[in-house]
Write a protein that binds this DNA or RNA. Structure first.
Lengths: 156, 156
DNA sequence: GATCAATAGTTGACTAATCAACTATTGAGC
DNA sequence: GCTCAATAGTTGATTAGTCAACTATTGATC
């Protein structure tokens, strides 16, 4: 079903760019919610999940707060309070660096790692389920196109 | 530049589905912000802009509140207050239907139409700018793949 | 025409996002 | 070693998103 019909619009799109834009926004919203349905029953949001994934990848030393913000899939100005919430759930711990006292290093706790382990399979399952309708070649094409799209917006 | 490098991750993705997912989320975030930069200086959010577009398409009679919600590109449970904000800016007006007194019809005001006119060209320009890196055939492929992706998630 | 499930929308309570202004610390240049 | 711009992060104020509980109205059924 086309987006045009989904949103009950009569007029066709003004340009191919507009059509692609609308389709991209609508589809990503659907996919985000699909993923959220997997993660949120475990008591964390997608953004919080993203932080935990970053910290697992960073290892036991963890990362400074703003380095986490820089690696987030979706840009997040409220990183401090996002990590506050993870800390209050004991999924993340923080400590100010003695080396450079401006930096606060955040690292994932055992409970955080455990939560991630529980989510690994369902999450990958949901991702693969969402994309299983596409052939491997189509997936590669989409990834390539989206990479170029970001690249085009990066400069400027 | 690949998402992998952008988010400074070392390990490759666990599956092609995961890679596509991460790329889709990251790219759409970049595109949404790019579009937001066009719309928000005019004093409205992307969601509010979406409501105005829907109401312009609906014509002078307008639409019931929940019908607007159903047509939103991104699912929005807070439709009442979203329209409250548009009403307080005099971009939208509401009146309860005398036909079915449960329904509240919302329609766009002259000021709302004027705002949309001012945004039409910049918005389409931003959309076309974002997607100009892709050939027409690639655009069509992406739209097709994304349509199928939503279709796959719709049932179930 | 009385009952009651269904529909349309609003409200309250809470969580999260956004932006600007702020504090603390560092490092470079004099 | 003093000054000052730059960096790292936090806080306050406001706006927006989310979910459940609520009111009002309708239409179907008895």
């Amino acid at each position: 079903m086309s987006v045009l019909r989904e949103i009950k619009q009569r007029k066709p799109f003004g340009s191919h760019g507009e059509e692609a834009l609308v389709t991209l926004l609508r589809t990503t919203d659907v996919v985000r919610r699909h993923l959220g349905d997997v993660v949120e029953p475990h008591g964390i949001t997608m953004q919080q999940y993203n932080v935990l994934r970053i910290l697992r990848g960073a290892g036991p030393d963890g990362l400074p707060t703003l380095e986490i913000a820089a690696r987030m899939l979706e840009h997040t100005p409220g990183i401090t309070r996002l990590i506050d919430r993870l800390e209050s759930k004991n999924l993340v711990a923080r400590q100010r660096s003695s080396d450079d006292r401006r930096c606060v290093y955040c690292h994932i706790t055992a409970a955080g790692l455990q939560l991630l382990v529980a989510l690994d399979a369902p999450l990958r399952g949901a991702a693969d389920h969402a994309f299983h309708v596409l052939k491997k070649r189509e997936l590669a094409q989409i990834v390539d196109c989206l990479d170029r799209l970001r690249e085009g917006l990066r400069k400027k």
